[in-house]
Design a protein around this nucleic acid. Sequence first.
DNA 1: TAAGTGTATTAATAATGATAGTACAGCTAG
DNA 2: CTAGCTGTACTATCATTATTAATACACTTA
Lengths: 124, 124
Amino acid sequence: MFEIDLRSREPIYEQLVEKIKELIINNVLKPDEQLPAVRVLASELTINPNTIQKAYRELEHRGYIYSIPGKGNFVKPAGLENNAARLIDLSKELKRTVSEMRYLGMTDQEIFALIQTSLSQDRR
Amino acid sequence: MFEIDLRSREPIYEQLVEKIKELIINNVLKPDEQLPAVRVLASELTINPNTIQKAYRELEHRGYIYSIPGKGNFVKPAGLENNAARLIDLSKELKRTVSEMRYLGMTDQEIFALIQTSLSQDRR
DNA sequence: TAAGTGTATTAATAATGATAGTACAGCTAG
DNA sequence: CTAGCTGTACTATCATTATTAATACACTTA
């Protein structure tokens, strides 16, 4: 279900967080859907259960999942709560990305087209 | 000249790379302009010269600066060479960012406006 | 020549990611 | 109720890496 690069300099648990976040954002993992059990996923990926747990706790801390002890970890339905700070960060990131694209020779038109594609697809 | 967060989980040399890259992309550091000497910057920031050197070598490897032994490190004028791979990465990053913004409740109009601002400013 | 520059090398330390093993508590199906 | 699943907590250990420290050498320029 998830693909991990053990040789990457990026920590395994960080890779997991990003992958799962991606699946949640793109609605592949539906709200309240149960995530794989810590031990199960650890076994599948051949990594330590503690590493999975660390990723799940991080995802919970960032507001993407919630856990019920004894039952499992579940996808948290998107709320409109503490998004202000995150949106500010994302805005900065977006501006950085666009700046670098222009620096590398991409024209405004090309960037514009790329963004429109991004906006029109994945529509929910 | 540069601000570093010693308490960050992000390595100092990585922070330096990002900051300096930022200044180069935004044309604050001009092409062929000399960067601070390794020992000078290390002294200013109260960190080890080796850490500065590591950042400079990384920037050189990424194509943002060049060095002349005995003279110094200098900003590399933007070429249109090996940008294809980097642009693909940036495109993916941009799509990820936009996806998450929409997930967090930002409307397409709002995202659109933000991007236009980003495109219209910093024009060279 | 002297002082500044980049570069290379080795060693030691500190922080952190990852593993291993164990234990405990809640939930649920039989 | 019991068995087996679930999450969670804890300790210890290992490996990797970031960082510092201390030198040393070669090139450039005044």
